[in-house]
Write a protein that binds this DNA or RNA. Structure first.
Lengths: 217, 217, 217, 217
DNA sequence: AATGAATGAGAATTCATTCAT
DNA sequence: TATGAATGAATTCTCATTCAT
């Protein structure tokens, strides 16, 4: 956690530092993110950064926490709009919508997470995992189990595999976004498409027969 | 391209150098790959590497080419087994099978490609792209167009989006493999699952009615 | 000297600061003692320390003075128990006893002195010497002269050399203690042994055997 | 151990680097010795030093080895002049003479060893000890045992304590020398004096006076 | 009187690249 | 053709000291 010093800073300065740090850590691996560059751009002394944070990892970790927190918040807000006993796919779409809200606010927040998942430094990844766990993975597994119980998902599915598939697919959306190949709008469209496909693949087989699942035309 | 010197090297030495270089470049970003480490492990002089290759990028680029070439070869071999006018999904599965053959031979070849797609150094990525283009993307778009013409894919699809979806999904498989979360066998199983879902999602809608696409049980 | 501010501090706080400072300065060279660590452990502000003391040296110097003062006190108390015209070796033993009392009270006080004698920073050592002089050395020389006059020491001795020898030997005891190789009790035993040897070596020759032991010269 | 690179250097350069390094490491603690200063004074690039040595410790350790080696050599040469079954005190004097020869050649070699014995960084000291052991201590203990068997030392002695005393006394000589308080000649005189005292203290009691000098119990 | 933010020099170490032999 | 020494900028992190509040 940042030192008290950091929180005593005028908000503008604090935000500026976080902003520049986000630039760094979202733009490459942990190793490649340069504190030197941050302080140079921020116009502060090298030592100052060390008054705010324990060390490089402390800053990185704090940033990750902020991003995760915000993402979770958005997801929860999107899900709050759903009724009780919500459909699995409705939840997934709400979660995705939350993710997209995050991206529209600041794409780097998403990139930060992606970078972490690809972090080449094993020690860094382990330290992160030790605190954050696999996060989404567990939540998702719970959703899937619930969805199967409620008859929203094919009972023949292997929950573990399904979770991997779903998680992987949503990571794809993230990465397509991060790569800048698609605009946010295009990505959202693609995500809807992907979700439709997923839904088609994961719904109970019998339940799909004789009906038109796709209303997008 | 490597200098002539490199090709004059005894094959064992040449392979050894490439092998160690693959270790480096598959294990992190371009920046993090260390020539120093390569020469140390290879037991050759720093200067020698510069007699074989222009610079770091030259070596990296050559490695990428080798991996791409081999992947393409495997895909082509897998596709050669298909009859004339092959089904789109059969082609996809063949391509995937080619990819898995690559992975079984050397997982680092796959990791190398993944790392490149995530390369944080813009200049590096651009130089790579300038020579390799989006590779798979164009081939895939052609397949999709063909598939739609032949009535194997839903005519209502947006080919570009579909290409992205398909590409993204196969990248997912790659990354799951690279992450080590799944064994190659598990990943292959998951890939089959994913392909089934994709097929379900992309086949012409009418064509699916009243038939059981899924024979896996 | 500390500023007035320091003496206005509640005693507990004052002692705590000195205690932590002793930890630092007894544990390494002047340079390695870290004010940052002191204030962190003391839970006071960096600036506060500079309100109490001029600078790092001021604190160090004050600490040295305190330790020296106490050591002198203990020595004097041990000597007060001796009768008038005390024997040189009785005085030495009393002095040593004083030193051991100091060590038993707080071994860091001894370590502090030893570190000073080994201080690598010439400027620091010189500033210390400028104020404290060689301390013990002069007192010791006086004792030796006195001892020779009173016939307690061999008149053939070179007083300067003898002083060095005696001082050096007692430093040995200090360092053995500081090194932690011996317990205080063991060290005290060793000191007695050493003193016995010294006594044997420095007593007037005639007093021992009626012959001149020295065949080297 | 230094890298091959170092040994391939022209001798003058190699010596110059070692000389400057000796300046650093003999002048303070491990931490205080500055590689930056060494390269600046040597007029070489920072990176070059790392071509010669693994890291700071490697350089330090190599220096220590050189000094130890030379000291041992001198001691052995001095002892070679002694006849068979040499007297314990003759051996001690020879050893001391070896030490003085070292000091006359380069006092920093002695200072280096002293600094090591006082090294505040525990980890450094441990790594050194792990390779060098206590060196002298063991050799000395053997001498003492031998001396007692041969009737050159008082059989009532505790060999451990005696070893400590002797070792400590010779360290004193070292430190007096290192401190610069005495010239080498004066120090050698003092050493002789000290040895005479020691001899007097450690010789068999009967051999001296036919009585037991020890009344301390 | 107390605070604690700011500073910048200095520390060890790694790296890709050049070039004389 | 191979070598490997030299380079210097880059990295993270620590420190004593100052000063406005």
């Amino acid at each position: 956690m940042p030192r008290e010093t950091f929180f005593n800073l005028p908000e503008a300065k604090r935000k500026r530092i976080l902003d520049l740090a986000l630039d760094e850590f979202a733009g490459g691996s942990y190793r490649e993110a340069s504190l030197t560059r941050i302080v140079k751009r921020a116009g502060i002394a090298k030592g100052s950064l060390y008054q705010y944070f324990e060390d490089k990892f402390d800053l990185y970790f704090y940033l990750l926490g902020l991003a995760g927190e915000r993402k979770l918040l958005y997801i929860q807000e999107a899900m709050a709009a759903l009724g009780p006993e919500p459909d699995f796919f409705a939840m997934m779409k709400a979660a995705m919508a939350g993710g997209f809200r995050l991206v529209r606010e600041d794409p780097r927040l998403l990139a930060l997470g992606n970078r972490m998942l690809q972090e080449p430094d094993l020690a860094v990844r382990q330290r992160v995992m030790a605190h954050f766990g696999s996060m989404g993975e567990e939540m998702l597994a719970a959703w899937i189990r619930q969805g199967m119980e409620r008859g929203q998902l094919d009972p023949g599915l292997n929950p573990g595999t399904a979770a991997h598939v779903v998680l992987a697919v949503s990571q794809v959306v993230s990465q397509v976004l991060a790569s800048g190949k698609l605009s946010v709008d295009q990505a959202e469209e693609m995500a809807a498409e992907v979700m439709a496909i997923l839904e088609h693949g994961l719904r109970p087989r019998g339940a799909r027969r004789g009906e038109n699942r796709r209303d997008r035309g």
